[in-house]
Design a binder for these strands. Structure first.
Lengths: 358, 358
DNA sequence: GCTAATCGATAAATCGATTTTTCGTTCTTG
DNA sequence: CAAGAACGAAAAATCGATTTATCGATTAGC
């Protein structure tokens, strides 16, 4: 490609047309791969494109079509590995198909979620991948429905009557966690989570409970959830331990819960797995390098992203039929943070503000 | 806003015009806030907008202006907290000004970085926030220069002759780390890093070295860097320890290096800070809940994002003058992973594949 | 009272592509 | 050899806004 001298204005399709001695319509057809153009003219168009360094303006190109080659992605946050990877994957998949991905963070707010969606509707995006803040019944999905937008719901979602959904099979993963913990001999387990994703959280909870009670009906399962943010969860957990409750294992249904649990263990000077075992939903890179390594449920990010995009483009291409609800299998990584109860001394006792360093 | 019945086609400015009994030009002027419109007509326009639920199509609106209200953001990755927060901040700041942010991940590849940039140029973005994979001298910045694009370079960058730059003051932060480590009595310190960000890494290195040698000229500073990816770093580190080298502290110049160091410590059964101290550049949420908590340099993400956007919009609005090079101050969080050398037994010894669990 | 300046609004051009319509050739075919 | 089909390409309409040029109706000024 030869550097164009005038860097002020980029060459338009008309510049190419006049250089090639044909009309703009012909240029458009050649670039679109239409075969009813004389080979000689096609060659002259290619030459002119090369000489001018011409590239199609996607904005102008999208003007005339109803469905623009833009995909919107709305995630609750970008700061976690899970959603970070998700956006990376989605972006790559959109690009492969010649689409541009516009990603936005709802910052865990349903109000913002709806605003972003309205803005994406303004852009007349071809489709939306929405990871809702709460669940599939929020105002964002309703907005999409009311405006006839096409989209796919992922992550904190189980199934919907209007949109395809793709999420991790958290129930199955939780059942596997239950098998492992019960197998290790745990008889008093605490589950912590946020009620945000209603159906999803319930799936994880029930998946665990059903399996655990099947294996050992005498098992005791306590549950601490918080409706809104993570801070109430922290204080509830503190109260719970403060009351003298001593489960031998904790299963956190979300990453931030795992962090809260770890920090509460720290506060009390408890070590995993001697004093208490810990498993968290959602893996992170650091979990395998800390001491102890933290056991975690790994969500199949790539599969979720790829399946979501497949379904989305099928709908964009006009596929009809009832919405599907996909569940992608997770992997459970058992690491050192899980042991058998009673294998080490339970350091019970009071609240040490400053944990010992050795 | 009243729900429109026909959800097929959204109302255009002409629909509003005919409903209000005026021309499309008048509608455009009213919505742009031009005052030379009879109040009565303006009111009728507002009424029609309300009744039809009309919203401006940003694509069509941008067609006629040279600078479109789109900002491009290119990050090396989305998976880390740092870049995740960065994108969130940039998105919010762009939105505040009525711009749409299109973010893309270069996935640590300079080739991809340039491709993305070319695509953003196709979109005729008003400006670009580029966090280069290597440094300010890469092909991406050259492309921006050659095509007269306006942009700001951030993060792995010190200063440039064409673009404003904003980054963390890593030299000052590294000097502070040096003060703290030397203050604790460390006399043999290992620094690990990637040479990717040439100037930035050198700044961190020299910032540390200069300060450390000033405080204690007899101090020994070893440096292990890898040119390309993180895996060679891991093996170099393994070799280094395998040769019997026993620094009392490690300073990692990047997050992934901190993870590599931790995993090597694990492999050898060394604990922080008894066996070795550790400080890392770049903080992460988990670092304060693990045991021990990991000392880290916190980068001022919000300040970098906000300053970058300020500079960018100043240029978009036509500001001229030589490019500026901003350095935003970091915060150093000393945590339990740093202690004094010799305060605990150095567990020296060989390579234990399986670290002891208690 | 007639021309000139002012005001408000409309018609038309524009942005850069795509798509439909029209048109001029060449090739068939009766 | 003339009428019609087939082909290739140009002209024109379109997408939905913004901006410039134009125009008619008041108002001002002399």
């Amino acid at each position: 490609m030869v550097q164009q001298e005038a860097r002020q204005r980029r060459p338009s399709i008309h510049d190419v047309a006049s250089h090639a001695g044909v009309s703009a319509a012909t240029v458009s057809k050649v670039l679109a791969g239409v075969t009813t153009v004389k080979p000689e003219n096609a060659q002259r168009v290619f030459d002119a494109v090369e000489r001018l360094g011409y590239r199609v303006d996607p904005l102008a190109s999208d003007m005339r079509r109803a469905k623009r080659r833009i995909i919107g992605a709305i995630m609750p946050e970008f700061e976690s590995e899970f959603f970070g990877q998700m956006v990376t994957e989605l972006e790559g998949l959109a690009e492969q198909r010649g689409y541009t991905l516009v990603a936005a963070s709802s910052r865990e707010s349903e109000a913002r979620e709806k605003e972003i969606l309205a803005r994406m509707h303004d852009w007349r995006v071809a489709g939306v991948v929405l990871a809702p803040v709460r669940n599939e019944h929020g105002p964002a999905a309703a907005f999409m429905k009311a405006n006839g937008m096409t989209g796919v719901l992922i992550d904190r979602v189980l199934s919907d009557d209007a949109f395809d959904t793709v999420s991790a099979d958290s129930a199955a993963a939780s059942a596997e966690v239950a098998r492992m913990l019960v197998g290790k001999g745990h008889k008093h387990i605490l589950i912590i989570g946020l009620a945000e994703g209603a159906a999803t959280v319930r799936a994880r909870l029930e998946g665990f409970r059903a399996q655990a009670l099947t294996l050992d009906p005498s098992i005791r399962i306590d549950v601490i959830t918080s409706e809104v943010s993570v801070e109430p969860l922290r204080s509830s957990l503190r109260d719970y331990f403060g009351r003298g409750e001593r489960p031998t294992a904790v299963y956190s249904l979300l990453l931030k819960g795992t962090l809260v649990a770890l920090s509460e263990f720290r506060r009390r000077g408890w070590h995993c797995p001697n004093d208490i075992s810990l498993v968290g939903f959602d893996d992170a890179e650091w979990m395998q390098v800390t001491w102890p390594a933290i056991a975690a449920v790994v969500q199949p990010v790539r599969q979720i992203a790829s399946e979501a995009m497949n379904l989305l483009f099928r709908r964009i291409d006009g596929a009809v039929g009832p919405p599907t609800a996909r569940l992608e299998p997770c992997q459970v990584l058992m690491r050192e943070s899980v042991g058998s109860p009673g294998s080490g001394p339970h350091s019970g006792g009071g609240d040490r503000q400053q944990p010992p360093l050795s």
